[in-house]
């Protein structure tokens, strides 16, 4: 497209002449980061804050021990009153067929490039996550095999997300450090099946509560186009007291 090529030259020339007088700034790598980077809470308090902030967004949160996880998942699925679920391909098999659970009849669609129409028929979705940020009650998906393609956490009306306590950091900068492997935070973390730590992710979705709007008279209404229900199971997998997030 010649229009675009001409414009490119023109814009870059204008920018060059506009910035000529200012000395080319050194790559300051974000300045000096005078704001809060590290969290101050213990692992237990960090997890509690994460749970509290999620609840403020109207998310349903339960906690469980690692050995109880499959039962906890089954209980959530059962309580949802839904039968048909979609799941990313990388989930542990135990999550999908809760052997200890007496009730059967859950229908699972494993997402191997399912068409949108099929995913639309699912009533719920079950995924893991890359990270949880306590301060803002945010769940971060990097869309690995445990978290799935973006579409599966979008069309179903109900999202059940499993967050391990060791995946929770306190501040947003701690999450970014975890991505870039700059902080001590990444050592000793047990993030399973996720995009390799130390790489800037190409796809990210930051989720803070169920979809919402305040467009009519600033009244917050839960659930517009994304999942109207966000349920979270926090798994207490950390050695209590040790800081996993750095």
């Amino acid at each position: 497209m010649s229009v675009s090529a001409d414009s490119r030259k023109q814009i870059l020339e204008r920018i060059r002449s506009a910035t000529q007088s200012s000395a080319p700034a050194a790559n300051t790598n974000g300045g000096t980061r005078q704001y809060q980077i590290r969290g101050k809470l213990t692992a237990a308090a960090r997890k509690d804050l994460f749970v509290e902030r999620l609840r403020e967004y109207d998310a349903e949160v339960v906690e469980c021990e690692p050995e109880e996880l499959e039962n906890a998942i089954a209980a959530q699925l059962e309580a949802s009153g839904r039968r048909r679920f979609v799941a990313p391909p990388g989930l542990p098999a135990g999550w999908l067929v809760p052997a200890a659970w007496k009730i059967t009849g859950f229908e699972w669609d494993i997402d191997h490039d399912l068409p949108a129409g099929e995913i639309e028929k699912a009533e719920g979705v079950l995924t893991g996550c890359f990270c949880g940020v306590a301060e803002s009650g945010t769940i971060v998906l990097h869309h690995s095999a445990m978290e799935g393609r973006r579409i599966i956490t979008l069309l179903p009306d109900w999202h059940l997300c499993i967050v391990r306590a060791t995946q929770i950091v306190e501040t947003l900068p701690e999450y970014f450090d975890r991505c870039e492997n700059r902080g001590e935070g990444s050592k000793g973390t047990k993030v399973q099946g996720n995009a390799p730590i130390g790489e800037v992710p190409g796809l990210v979705t930051w989720i803070s509560g169920p979809s919402a709007t305040a467009d009519i008279e600033m009244t917050r209404i839960k659930g517009v186009h994304g999942p109207r229900f966000l349920n979270v199971i926090v798994v207490n997998d950390g050695d209590q007291g040790s800081g996993a997030g750095g």
């Binding site: 803002s136 796809l203 990210v204 979705t205 989720i207 803070s208 979809s211």
Partner: peptide
């Protein structure tokens, strides 16, 4: 809000997703 419900980041085209 402490954080808006959804923030999306993408990089060019991801095969099979989007």
């Amino acid at each position: 809000e402490r954080m808006n419900p959804y923030t999306s980041l993408w990089t060019g085209v991801t095969r099979g997703d989007g």
